[in-house]
Write a protein that binds this DNA or RNA. Sequence first.
DNA 1: GCACATATTAAACAACTGTTTGAAATATGT
DNA 2: ACATATTTCAAACAGTTGTTTAATATGTGC
Lengths: 228, 228
Amino acid sequence: MQKQTKNDPSGGNSDLARQRLLDAAEKLFVSEGYDGTSVRAITELANCNVAAVNYHFGTKDALYKQAVTRRLHMLRDYRVNSIDQLMEAGPENIPLEKLLEVFARAFLEPLLNDETGPAIIQLMHREILDPHLPTDTFLDEIFLPVANAIKSALQAVCPYLDDKNALLIVHSIVGQLVHIVQMVVLLSGSSFVTDNPKESIEEHVKHIVHFTAVAIRSYQNHPEGGQL
Amino acid sequence: MQKQTKNDPSGGNSDLARQRLLDAAEKLFVSEGYDGTSVRAITELANCNVAAVNYHFGTKDALYKQAVTRRLHMLRDYRVNSIDQLMEAGPENIPLEKLLEVFARAFLEPLLNDETGPAIIQLMHREILDPHLPTDTFLDEIFLPVANAIKSALQAVCPYLDDKNALLIVHSIVGQLVHIVQMVVLLSGSSFVTDNPKESIEEHVKHIVHFTAVAIRSYQNHPEGGQL
DNA sequence: GCACATATTAAACAACTGTTTGAAATATGT
DNA sequence: ACATATTTCAAACAGTTGTTTAATATGTGC
């Protein structure tokens, strides 16, 4: 992309400006939301003229959609691929804890990544609260694919889980993981001193894996779950 | 409030307009967010003049703070009181499942209430994403009081839980409960037909109670949790 | 009924918003 | 170097925003 091919009539500089606009837009949509972000703020951060948004993307809304969609697909692919790769070892060779840990880390990858932090997941939260994508995009293009991937994997590793219980368990796992992100966001604006945020996240991940594994194993003897 | 006392010099009509503005503001802040809600939209919904916000509240921001804070305190008090009332029966008389169920229902009360639905909890999500309250208000005035109440109650009912594990478990419970709300919000804008949303919520609550109880009991023999 | 306090109101204000427009600059192919 | 395509740009536009202002209407106490 730094190299400009002489055959490309659409111009490399155009791609650079587009990229800068997408990156700037993403950053501002994360921190200010859609309505709180102006086209002028985006173009100033991207070092572009205010009309560049309309030239390259048509409208602010279309820019938003592209900024969100590229991240949404990235998150889905990373999460689904992580599960698929693990499952290549064969379900009988995969400890439940391992599956849960791989999923948790894949789910939280942007958060665990120093460069991105909670931003991308936070952008997804915003899209849920204020949807701008076409109806059901979030469900169809990230939530359901990821949920189905981990659900199938759970059922392969724990064949005693029926469809209904497996899905309920997926919701429990996702809820716990999302909560970590929300706590990070909440504490990031806080005057509380966190000793070591990364260590705290690791601790939560470890807890969730164990907590969840125990509960799942209880379904082996009790399809209704929860009885000891 | 329908009766106007002759002794009240601040005027009943003023309280009526204030109330209408708060209610209208809340409704719009829930659905459109802070930046997506204009003063004109609020005053139109409240059947007031646009300057009424400034007269009664000073600024749009101050109106927002009051609208959010009144609900935040309401949620906290309901949750904490539900736990406290249950604990009056004495921890030795309270099954763990009962405690978890009471907490879950108290936590989700607005959602379970046909009049409010997920709106109020959604308003809290928005405040986390776009804080307008003074720093740490959300933490200090709802999250921590509620977390501490359920943490103490859990430790009273399950004395084998130490501080660290109890807190991690509280996070797991809250994460699962918050996730229900997020799913309701996500599906409310969806073309998916939900057979019976109330029944689905009940099912999730039942699952979370049992799922969580099993996992908690595992700490009895294994302070590190998670081992079977 | 009057004086004073309070609440409501329409108009005005400065600033901001996303978009459009046409000129100018730059890139590209021959 | 020229013709054409693409990109960038400043200015303009109509609409929106939260706030202020002063007049008017309403409420209250005596």
